[in-house]
Design a protein around this nucleic acid. Structure first.
Lengths: 338, 338
DNA sequence: AGAGCCTATGTTATCGATGCCATATGTAAC
DNA sequence: GTTACATATGGCATCGATAACATAGGCTCT
């Protein structure tokens, strides 16, 4: 029975390599980790054996014995719509990869406390060494506190648990720049279609808008809240189209801006002749749709990367990293009768 | 020394739980995995101990001893631009999560053989039990063959290694539907702005277009190749704008379509009055830009989920899963003088 | 009542790499 | 010519869970 041809194709282990190379497993381990005290000659033999057997190390064993998983967890929203969020993902992955860390992604289908808890648990179970949370914590539960106490966590949204660190993202700046641009063109009032109130991003952009208006001695009109989607922009645009003296709108995202524009046009307003629109994100399409969108671009990729650096203790919390710049295109113009 | 207060806060292990509950580690293991033969009474004691100690299992140990990682690897392109791809990601994650699998994502910055090899290696090192490749294999190397021989792999692009299975995605259908729509409107010729030739998607959509034209007895004009980006659409649109008798264009993606439209308009052509445009994807913005885009929607989410099912042996290869449906909006119309 | 079989639980070996300590050279220092 | 110390390598315990086997009651069936 035992003498059968069967050899269940087990992956070769370090011991196998050691045997082939005529050294101990320990030496193989040292070689593969570039330990200093290994004879170049020996090293060569070991590497040859590795090559020959097609050896690849067993991650689980490595993690178990070293106690290090070299993995970072990332929590993002599933729906791909939010441009800035996917840029964050790319930044996190790039920075983590560079530092030799893998990224385990937990997506949540929508903002929901239960889903959030489950995602964090999942990541904790996977033994991640750090967590980047790129969605708002709509409410912080005990369970979340427990996990973020045990595992270094950085939030990118401004919301936080007792122990999670927050990477400073000054979104007000974007709101200010956008509003300023409209005022500079001669508009006397600027309306705002904001993101959902749970998102600090949305709140900060709204604040920037308010402050900028206040500084100009203008009383801000009530903001209209959307959910980042083009459709929500469209619906709020329909509201704006019913208000006669609207000449300038600041939308909190490009996607909403396009919805607003559509509604305004359907309502008989021309953009930018009657109404100017600025938004935030600068998605690729912004320059190619009609009209090409004037929008504030921010470097979210960089803040994703910075979050990883912060987790790996190579950067400080509180630093403000997202820089904003205005791309002026064709959705804004001076008001008709200044 | 030893009597110090210090207790280095090691995570509690199964043994600790066992001690607290007054049972063996094995019983704890059984309880936590819902083994049938555990006394409800005992189970309760164990769960209480788990709760009390804040125990969470050690994934590495579990993987090492069971030989199962319960993780699936996913290779995608980093740049978020390709709508269909991110839908695939969501589908993969949802299906994997449902089956109790985690997803480890390897993103490649661009289509490059070296990067591809590295990503696969990374995933293999992590001990994934299956791999979903959602990008084209521009060239298959020995190393890729080796990895996909050892680990069940499904490709979603149609390209393949010797052992990877291919999930049948009939993209021709999309090309056919789009072209058919234009012909039905009365157009006598349909031009095509295709995706990059490395992508099977692009090739198949092109084929569908060609076949549909051929069936109507029309000689297809040379396709214009883009890279999925709005900008590439714009550049090819400039070419089209220089050709007098273009009345209908099929673009292989929504983003390119918007680029084409912009170029055509700048060239003095009106859309859809002078030129009709159909594309593929149905991104959220398609309905809100000007003009609202007529486009073919495909269910990529579903094919991502199907890829996972295939890996987990719950489905068959070769099955065609992506269904296409046309969303008629305002970028198409009958030709001016039929 | 003893064979046979479930149920509930414990014991022990094992997965594959690493940490720590031991050992065997070589070689510089006094 | 010891002491001393760096270099190169091996041995063994260990990480935490699981698989496989072992055992001890309790029950059914003939």
């Amino acid at each position: 029975m035992t003498g059968a041809t069967e050899r269940p194709a087990r992956q070769p282990s370090m011991t196998d390599v050691a045997r082939t190379a005529g050294v101990s497993a320990q030496t193989v381990s040292r070689t593969l980790r570039d330990s200093p005290n290994v004879n170049p000659e020996t090293k060569k033999r070991v590497l040859a054996a590795v090559e020959q057997l097609g050896y690849r190390f067993n991650n689980a064993a490595r993690v178990l014995s070293s106690g290090r998983s070299h993995t970072i967890g990332l929590v993002v929203l599933q729906s791909g719509g939010y441009y800035s969020r996917s840029a964050v993902t790319a930044g996190v992955e790039a920075a983590a990869g560079e530092a030799g860390y893998a990224v385990s992604i937990a997506t949540i289908a929508r903002l929901d406390t239960g889903l959030m808890e489950r995602s964090l648990s999942k990541l904790a179970d996977q033994g991640v060494e750090g967590i980047v949370i790129a969605v708002p914590l709509i409410s912080v539960t005990q369970k979340m506190e427990d996990i973020t106490r045990d595992i270094p966590t950085v939030t990118l949204d401004g919301s936080r648990t007792a122990s999670a660190r927050v990477l400073g993202i000054d979104q007000k700046e974007a709101g200010r720049i956008a509003t300023r641009h409209l005022l500079d063109l001669g508009h006397r009032q600027v309306w705002h279609v904001s993101g959902p109130d749970e998102w600090i991003e949305a709140r900060q952009r709204r604040q920037g808008w308010q402050e900028c208006l206040a500084a100009a001695g203008i009383q801000a009109p009530p903001p209209l809240e959307g959910d980042w989607s083009p459709d929500s922009g469209y619906r709020q645009g329909q509201v704006l189209a019913m208000i006669p003296d609207v000449t300038a709108v600041f939308a909190a995202s490009d996607e909403m801006a396009f919805g607003v524009i559509r509604a305004l046009r359907e309502g008989g307003r021309s953009v930018p002749a009657d109404v100017s629109i600025v938004s935030v994100d600068d998605i690729e399409l912004a320059a190619y749709c009609a009209p090409p969108l004037t929008t504030v671009r921010q470097d979210f990729y960089r803040s994703g990367a910075a979050a990883v650096a912060l987790l790996l203790r190579q950067a400080d919390a509180g630093e403000t990293l997202v820089t904003a710049s205005l791309s002026v295109r064709a959705s804004t113009a001076p008001p008709r009768s200044p």
